[in-house]
């Protein structure tokens, strides 16, 4: 009898590993920046280039830094989620417009909506490099002390928002 059930048992064993594996993303290269201070920067703002935006402006606040670009297809995918999140007023979202042309970026936001309090222009991608951006989009959650608490590689998903990012924000706000 056992020999007829054994294949099923083996399959169930493999399926369990597959299920656990599914929850993990093999691309999640552990970021050395997690729980370290977010690198400082000072960049000109996208809509008002005469003004600047720097990390220190955000001291004492919990905020999201979303790396985006008008040339990025995946950014389109996560954009509605960001707009919805911005409307909820849970957390201010700041954009890091990465290796983009200013006119393209502004037009892109006009077409698809602007979830950002403001976006900073990282034309050469230097700040992105400091943050260890492997590609676009990426999103960083930074706490009151300027420490990176979470990094989303690739587009933000509903699941990541509901299960990780929003709970973490709530926890951080309670801590203060």
């Amino acid at each position: 009898m056992i020999r007829f059930i054994a294949p099923l048992a083996v399959f169930i064993g493999i399926a369990v590993f597959l299920l656990i594996g599914l929850d993990l993303n093999p691309r999640n290269v552990p970021s050395p920046l997690i729980d370290k201070a977010a690198p400082a920067f000072q960049l000109s703002q996208l809509h008002q280039p005469e003004k600047t935006f720097s990390r220190s402006d955000m001291a004492g606040k919990v905020w999201l830094l979303n790396v985006w670009a008008s040339w990025c297809v995946s950014c389109r995918a996560e954009h509605p989620l960001l707009i919805a999140l911005a409307k909820q007023n849970i957390v201010p979202i700041y954009g890091l417009n990465y290796k983009d042309k200013r006119t393209d970026a502004i037009r892109w936001l006009r077409q698809l909506g602007n979830p950002y309090v403001l976006s900073a222009q990282d034309v050469e991608g230097k700040v992105g490099f400091d943050y260890g951006v492997y590609g676009v989009p990426e999103t960083y959650l930074i706490d009151q002390n300027g420490t990176i608490r979470y990094k989303q590689i690739g587009p933000v998903t509903r699941k990541a928002l509901d299960e990780t990012i929003i709970p973490l924000i709530k926890k951080l706000k309670l801590e203060s």
């Binding site: 007829f4 059930i5 294949p7 099923l8 399959f11 169930i12 399926a15 597959l18 299920l19 599914l22």
Partner: peptide
């Protein structure tokens, strides 16, 4: 796909057993 896999393969092996 994993659920589908479970239904098809699991179902088939169950039927087999």
């Amino acid at each position: 796909i994993l659920i589908f896999l479970g239904v098809v393969i699991g179902g088939a092996l169950l039927l087999y057993a």
